[in-house]
Amino acid sequence: MLQEWLYLAIFLAISLFIPAAAIGAAALLSPKKPSTLKNSIYECGIETVGPARIQFKAQYYLYAILFLIFDVETVFLFPFAVAYNQLLFFAVIEVILFVFVLAGGLAYAWRRGALEWS
């Protein structure tokens, strides 16, 4: 088990290192002539008005919370899926109950209009 995680850690480190090395090489090869005009950020051909970090709509938060709930639900169901072959029909009914409660949550979100992008 530990070996598999070690392999994954090495793999991720390497897959971070390869693009980093490529960008590093590009930084050496490429010209470096920064100027105020070139580095300035743009917005419809004029200079940016106000700070770049603007306030966001509540819609994003709603999607994030829906995602969080359904992600937790799915993660709860993964052990069920692995153990599925060893389980009885009763367990399937339990899972149906579990899913239905959360499907009710989705229906509520739908009715309240939380799924509409406004």
Partner: peptide
């Protein structure tokens, strides 16, 4: 519990 969290979150968000 998840359902309660979902409804609460949506209520506040809406």
């Amino acid at each position: 519990l998840l359902l309660a969290a979902l409804i609460g979150g949506i209520y506040v968000g809406i």
